[in-house]
Write a protein that binds this DNA or RNA. Structure first.
Lengths: 134, 134
DNA sequence: CAGTATCCTTGCGGATACTG
DNA sequence: CAGTATCCGCAAGGATACTG
């Protein structure tokens, strides 16, 4: 494989990165890495618009508190739009913003790769743990 | 934009995902989202091989404890290889595994996208905070 | 040089109960 | 329905000191 060529391109990209930019990337990643963020972006990407309770049902196991937290975080990051209809009983719908959709799209090849290499991850983990316990 | 088409592809990808697979993805992401992981993978991608102290210098601000922790995590995930020369004074070199290189390559388009949309993120954040404090 | 060991603070994630 | 309020346990991240 021509990893050399690939790494050169990587280097070109990396050289342009300041510490500030690295912070931004980590912020995006770390938010995406939160317990429920991925599933929410996912669910919204598929369904388009969803209400709080609908999301709660799709996300099997999430508590109201964590769902709200996650949505607030995603909203603050500009990935999710919140629309409060100000009715009684309350009706609030969530959907991906353009930014959120963009992120989801960027993520797809990454997910595909992760799934393709799932065995590689498991093997590595197993080997590491064997050596550790031997 | 034809987000519809894109979302359909996304959906196709999503439908194939079990809760188990989602867990794996979140694990990968959450590790990548750790404070220093990204920088380490980055630095190793550029430099090839690096010693503990060299990494410490490149990563500006990391403590020995966190660097070791990060490296152990990455090693356990199979992204980084550790080679201990067993000399005195100690010499240990780290480098990306094939898996690690692959991950870095997958990440590049994502980083590029994040950087291109940095302003979008900042604007969203600003708006959200303005509405919150008003 | 390449780590451990110890202590501390912060924030995530969850359980439960309550409210407009 | 769509949240808040309160409490809790745990792990991440960091500061500091020490070791083979």
């Amino acid at each position: 494989m021509d990893t050399t060529e690939i790494l050169k391109r990587s280097q070109a990209a990396c050289d342009a990165m300041s510490a500030d930019e690295d912070g931004l990337k980590r912020e995006v990643l770390s938010h995406a890495g939160n317990r429920w963020s991925l599933g929410v972006v996912h669910a919204l990407g598929i369904a388009g618009k969803l209400r709080h309770a609908e999301l709660g049902r799709k996300m099997q196991g999430v508590t109201q508190r964590m769902l709200t937290r996650t949505l607030r975080q995603l909203e603050r990051d500009g990935l999710v739009l919140r629309h409060d209809y100000r009715e009684v009983p309350p009706r609030v719908e969530y959907q991906l913003s353009a930014l959120g959709t963009g992120l989801l799209v960027q993520m797809i090849p990454l997910w595909t790769w992760v799934m393709e290499n799932a065995d590689g991850f498991r093997d590595a983990r197993r080997k590491y743990d064997e050596n550790g316990t031997s």
